[in-house]
Lab assay of single mutants.
Amino acid sequence: MALNTPQITPTKKITVRAIGEELPRGDYQRCPQCDMLFSLPEINSHQSAYCPRCQAKIRDGRDWSLTRLAAMAFTMLLLMPFAWGEPLLHIWLLGIRIDANVMQGIWQMTKQGDAITGSMVFFCVIGAPLILVTSIAYLWFGNRLGMNLRPVLLMLERLKEWVMLDIYLVGIGVASIKVQDYAHIQAGVGLFSFVALVILTTVTLSHLNVEELWERFYPQRPATRRDEKLRVCLGCHFTGYPDQRGRCPRCHIPLRLRRRHSLQKCWAALLASIVLLLPANLLPISIIYLNGGRQEDTILSGIMSLASSNIAVAGIVFIASILVPFTKVIVMFTLLLSIHFKCQQGLRTRILLLRMVTWIGRWSMLDLFVISLTMSLINRDQILAFTMGPAAFYFGAAVILTILAVEWLDSRLLWDAHESGNARFDD
């Protein structure tokens, strides 16, 4: 018995066209964080690309023209004298008006014999932002004059995390709450300039795509075929072959399989920071003279006294001054041990922890910024005066060393310790 099946006739004509040209192939790229070699397709503007294995951002879609970056830099340069030299806060102490600005706080630190601690604050609040705007201006002028731009481009990517104007702005709020127990506070004209400078700096850093600047100024022929001998440069993120001198053909720094002496430098910085954190938390970090009496505060006791007036601000200072430094030390110690013992479990967790400490590390400088600003506000000789204690130097040095330890660690070593050939990683 035959089955009668109805015929289905399409209502619209289906047209099949042959592909007349070869589909576009992607360029081969190595991930600078996990060293995976993959094919990167062509990316349009405002599109980002991520590593298929570790999800690290390979290409950032946010990109401004150099002219727009230069305009932002010149605007920031105009704001800087007002943000640093004009009063941020006014207080009335014992019937006398006192003005506080950024430069005055750094000068008070240096004047009291601790120039190293003052230079830490100076670099993060004044030096690094000033280098940022002058570097962008150098790129703008240098591109037109045919100057060598490689050193500036190499420095810009590392400079971003040292620009800490946003953290200093939080420190202004913390210092205001600490001082309000002794005097009446009012915002100064410099505060508005400083807030504007923070906003412009944040926007500029978020749109400063150094890798795209490398592509514009020093374009290189990408690798179009897969080759395990391809290496990625950690300076400019170019994937290719080393030249005859073993250097990256684009930025001219040595092109090595792994960062040289990464573990040794990381261990040295980490152990030194552990040693410095002990006096930083045991010795007094601030000293207040009130009517001839002397009151010393460690980091913890200062947080407890701050909690009596504002528990939320005390929580912020606790996280930045105690929780973050010790968390960074514990995480980095764990990561280094996992590399030495070739741990194969929990790779995803370790990668996330490394990215976390990379982002939060700079916030530990908050305590030094609060001390710097408070020193310029309260300084009335023996009637009422505020000065920093010996722990300030140890704390600042420990924070900087932990930042350097994270920067010096080559994250690809975590993958080397893991089993080879993993296309995915999980716990």
Results as ranks from 00 to 15, higher is better:
Leu3Val: 05
Asn4Glu: 09
Thr5Asn: 08
Thr9Ala: 05
Pro10Gly: 04
Thr11Val: 04
Ile14Ser: 09
Ile14Glu: 10
Thr15Arg: 09
Val16Asn: 06
Gly20Ala: 08
Tyr28Phe: 10
Arg30Phe: 03
Arg30Thr: 05
Met36Thr: 08
Ser39Pro: 04
Glu42Arg: 06
Glu42Tyr: 03
Ile43Met: 09
Ile43Gln: 08
Asn44Cys: 13
Asn44Tyr: 08
Asn44Met: 05
Asn44Ala: 07
His46Leu: 07
Ser48Asn: 15
Pro52Glu: 05
Cys54Met: 00
Cys54Lys: 00
Ala56Thr: 08
Lys57Met: 10
Asp60Glu: 10
Gly61Asp: 13
Asp63Gln: 15
Leu66Gly: 08
Leu66Asp: 12
Leu66Val: 10
Thr67Trp: 12
Leu69Thr: 03
Ala71Ser: 08
Met72Leu: 06
Ala73Met: 13
Phe74Asp: 02
Phe74Lys: 12
Met76Asp: 02
Pro81Val: 04
Pro81Gly: 04
Trp84Asn: 06
Gly85Thr: 06
Gly85Cys: 04
Gly85Asn: 07
Leu88Gly: 04
Leu89Val: 09
Leu89Cys: 05
Leu89Pro: 00
Ile91Ser: 01
Trp92Thr: 03
Gly95Ile: 03
Ile96Met: 08
Gly105Glu: 01
Ile106Asn: 03
Gln108Met: 15
Met109Phe: 05
Thr110Gly: 13
Lys111Glu: 13
Ser119Asn: 02
Val121Lys: 04
Phe122Asn: 03
Ala128Trp: 01
Pro129Val: 06
Leu132Ala: 10
Ser135Gly: 05
Ser135Tyr: 01
Ala137Val: 06
Tyr138Glu: 01
Leu139Ser: 02
Leu139Ile: 10
Arg144Gln: 12
Gly146Met: 04
Met147Leu: 07
Asn148Cys: 04
Leu149Gly: 10
Leu153Pro: 02
Lys160Asp: 10
Glu161Asp: 13
Val163Phe: 07
Leu165Glu: 09
Leu165Met: 14
Asp166Ile: 15
Asp166Asn: 15
Val170Met: 10
Val170Cys: 15
Gly173Asn: 02
Tyr182Pro: 01
His184Gln: 07
Gly188Leu: 13
Gly190Glu: 02
Leu191Gly: 08
Phe192Ala: 08
Ser193Trp: 02
Ser193Met: 02
Phe194Trp: 05
Phe194Met: 14
Val195Thr: 12
Thr201Lys: 12
Thr202Cys: 13
Leu205Met: 14
Leu208Gly: 12
Asn209Leu: 09
Leu213Cys: 11
Glu215Val: 13
Arg216Lys: 13
Phe217Met: 15
Gln220Gly: 07
Gln220Met: 11
Gln220Pro: 12
Thr224Gln: 14
Arg225Cys: 13
Asp227Ala: 15
Asp227Pro: 12
Lys229Pro: 13
Lys229Val: 14
Lys229Met: 12
Arg231Thr: 12
Arg231Gln: 11
Val232Ser: 14
Leu234Ser: 12
Phe238Tyr: 12
Thr239Val: 12
Gly240Asp: 07
Asp243Phe: 07
Gly246Leu: 11
Arg247Leu: 11
Arg247Thr: 09
Pro249Glu: 10
Pro254Ser: 07
Arg256Asp: 13
Arg256Met: 09
Arg259Met: 14
Ser262Met: 14
Leu263Phe: 10
Ala268Glu: 03
Ala268Val: 03
Ala269Gly: 12
Leu270Trp: 10
Leu277Ala: 04
Leu278Pro: 03
Asn281Ala: 11
Asn281Arg: 00
Leu282Ile: 11
Ile285Ala: 01
Ser286Gln: 00
Ile287Glu: 06
Ile287His: 06
Ile288Phe: 03
Leu290Asn: 01
Asn291Leu: 15
Gly292Leu: 14
Gly293Lys: 10
Glu296Leu: 13
Glu296His: 12
Asp297Pro: 08
Thr298Glu: 15
Leu300His: 12
Leu300Glu: 05
Ser301Trp: 07
Ser301Ala: 04
Ala307Ile: 13
Ala312Ile: 14
Val313Lys: 02
Ala314Met: 12
Phe318Leu: 10
Ile319Ala: 15
Ala320Met: 15
Ser321Gln: 04
Leu323Asn: 03
Pro325Glu: 00
Val329Glu: 08
Val329Asn: 14
Val329Tyr: 03
Thr334Lys: 14
Leu336Ile: 11
Ile339Arg: 11
Arg348His: 11
Thr349Asn: 12
Thr349Ile: 15
Leu352Tyr: 10
Arg355Cys: 12
Arg355Pro: 05
Arg362Ile: 04
Leu366Thr: 08
Leu366Lys: 02
Asp367Asn: 00
Phe369Leu: 04
Ile371Gly: 01
Thr374Pro: 01
Thr374Met: 09
Met375Trp: 02
Leu377Gln: 02
Ile378Arg: 00
Ile378Val: 04
Asp381Lys: 03
Gln382Asn: 15
Gln382Tyr: 14
Ile383Ala: 03
Leu384Gln: 00
Phe386Cys: 00
Ala391Ser: 11
Ala392Thr: 04
Ala397Asp: 08
Thr402Ser: 02
Trp408Glu: 06
Asp410Gly: 00
Leu413His: 13
Asp416Ile: 11
Ala417Lys: 11
His418Leu: 10
His418Asp: 11
Glu419Tyr: 15
Ser420Ile: 11
Ala423Trp: 06
Ala423Thr: 15
Arg424Tyr: 04
Asp427Phe: 09
